[in-house]
Design a protein around this nucleic acid. Structure first.
Lengths: 146, 146
DNA sequence: TTTCTTTTGACTATTTTTAACCTATCGTTA
DNA sequence: TAACGATAGGTTAAAAATAGTCAAAAGAAA
């Protein structure tokens, strides 16, 4: 049995998927009425299920003719990065390890995952992928410090 | 004479075997009631009998309409070649962490790298890539033990 | 007896649901 | 244009509904 939040999510995803522009705009109160729940339940669903991490951005406006809007984004901001070949990537990991940002287990793990045979793909795609992976590692390291 | 834990295991295995998707989802409390035991007994069975070494991954959610889910994974080359979606991959990492094969830093690293936005690519390619990455992780863990 | 596994239950953590109160925007009227 | 009321959405805290953890007690095996 699905929770109410799950069912609302499913419904919204369906509507977005179905729309040409991958965008959905509606009134919070109306949607709440459709599901027979309080409006803040809708806010809850948006904030737990339609996050940037899930690939959505939400906007809203209060007052008369207010609305909530959900947009599905294709998050590829660093598509333009040139990426890294295996040697470059391993060197970066080595440095992060030597400088104490990664412990030995983490460094080993990364070196094994950045391997060309593990990643597969075409040369170009693989390089870009390494760029995204390293970016994610930097972000993670940044999080832990900040 | 079979222990209660054995009987619960047997019952769950039967249900999983019988299901098309080799997956079972139910409420911990309900199952406990079926067997007339405390809910933590169910947790005990899952953590001792439905481990990654036994070929299962478990997931759960607390709160309203919470559940426990058991999935039988087939870690044959074939299966790994079919790939994993983000949810499956994260559950595998969680299990490896809970069972002590990965420390917290390694698990965090992996969870962040297995993210769909980091990996990019098409759905299919991304699933396959996760399969190769997880295989590499298994190989690495195997090396360390052997 | 000693040690390992199972069983229990009290306490904790997480997720969802609800409700009361807060704030922004629009349209109208003084 | 300033002020006000109506109409939205936002925030937050508490209640409800689950599952997890941990360690002590009980039982089984060695």
């Amino acid at each position: 049995m699905k929770s109410l939040a799950d069912r609302i999510e499913e419904y919204l995803r369906y509507l977005i998927e179905r729309s040409e522009s991958k965008t959905l705009q509606m009134q919070r109160t109306e949607l709440a009425e459709t599901f027979g729940c309080v409006p803040s339940q809708i806010t809850y669903v948006l904030s737990t299920r339609f996050t940037i991490e899930e690939g959505f951005i939400t906007e809203s406006r209060r007052g008369g003719k207010g609305y909530i809007r959900i947009r599905q984004i294709d998050s590829s901001p660093d598509r333009i990065n040139r990426g890294y070949n295996q040697r470059e990537a391993l060197a970066i990991i080595e440095n992060l390890w030597r400088e104490g940002f990664l412990d030995e287990g983490e460094a080993e793990l990364l070196k094994c995952l950045l391997n060309r045979h593990v990643l597969g793909l075409t040369d170009h795609e693989r390089h870009l992928l390494r760029g995204r992976m390293l970016r994610a590692v930097y972000d993670l390291l940044g999080d832990n410090k900040g």
